[in-house]
Design a binder for these strands. Structure first.
Length: 283
DNA sequence: CTCCAGGGAGCCT
DNA sequence: AGGCTCCATGGA
């Protein structure tokens, strides 16, 4: 039973949001010539597609709310007013208009960004899907609809078997982090109650989680919109376009950008990231 | 062949 | 604290 969400007063681009590289929890499927996306979580499947200013979606199993997982209640116009501080950002916003930060599940987000280090985006996506296929719990609706395995499941997989995922040295990080999350050393609900600095400090206790991975998890899963992850692309952009904010030191660079863009620095980061990766020819 | 990819840990000073 | 090196693997 297809439901329709009116996007007349809600700036939103489904494609920019799900294909900018921020999330590894969505798959593409084409039905009757229409490009659709689906995600599996909390015992349900959400399938969405966009036709102009209408968002169409099907829910199967438990309800997964598109407003929640796509952050459709974020005040995007106000966010633009806050982050549009220079010409480069204005172009990034114009090109990617409607891109929203997602709200992913904590554990899948954490594991996919742990495996992301020194990897290219298509490969991260493929590995994440392999984990779902091998260790995930299938819904009744078919093997292609697997939930991401919980921390207890991955914690019990031998490390050399995890290496069959071709994640190399990251296998040990995945196993140890899964054990710690399973045992409650880091709890997402607990993290949400902390401020940015405290939550980041706590996340970095996990093996395989440093400044960058922690910032990604804070932004894409825990809703800390001030978080400004610095990867190789963003570093390049800052060095070239925001020279006075640049530093070789991660924390200094990230904090400079947070101070510059304000409470929605995470949005600024994602617009810069996608713009820099797809629309500019940085050296 | 070499170089690099949404980095992090361990070790050095 | 800050800098350097190694860590698997695959794609360009």
């Amino acid at each position: 039973m297809t439901e329709i969400l009116d996007l007349t007063d809600i700036p939103f681009s489904l494609r920019q949001t799900l294909e900018c590289g921020q999330t590894f929890s969505w798959s593409k499927t084409e039905e009757e010539g229409v490009q659709k996306y689906f995600t599996v979580r909390n015992g349900g499947i959400l399938k969405v597609w966009q036709e102009g200013d209408r968002l169409m979606y099907d829910c199967l199993g438990n309800r997964v709310d598109p407003v929640d997982v796509l952050r459709l209640d974020d005040p995007l116009d106000e966010i633009y007013r806050c982050i549009n501080k220079d010409g480069f950002m204005e172009r990034a916003v114009a090109v990617n208009h409607g891109l929203r930060i997602v709200r992913d599940e904590f554990f899948p987000c954490l594991i996919s960004y742990i495996t992301s280090s020194q990897m290219q985006i298509p490969r991260i996506l493929r590995i994440q899907m392999d984990i779902r296929a091998k260790y995930g719990q299938p819904l009744e609706l078919g093997r292609e609809y697997n939930q991401f395995p919980g921390p207890g499941v991955l914690a019990d997989v031998p490390e050399d078997e995890l290496r069959n995922l071709n994640i190399g040295y990251r296998a040990g990080y995945v196993k140890k982090t899964s054990e710690m999350v399973r045992d409650g050393a880091v709890d997402p609900e607990n993290l949400r109650s902390m401020d940015y600095t405290e939550a980041k400090e706590k996340l970095k206790v996990l093996p395989g989680v440093g400044d960058k991975v922690a910032d990604c998890v804070l932004l894409f899963s825990l809703g800390f919109l001030e978080s400004f992850p610095v990867d190789t692309w963003v570093r390049r952009i800052v060095k070239q376009e925001y020279r006075e904010k640049y530093s070789k030191n991660y924390e200094i660079l990230s904090e400079n950008m947070r101070n510059y863009f304000g409470d929605y620095a995470g949005y600024a980061q994602e617009y810069l990231f996608h713009y820099g990766r797809t629309c500019t020819d940085l050296e």
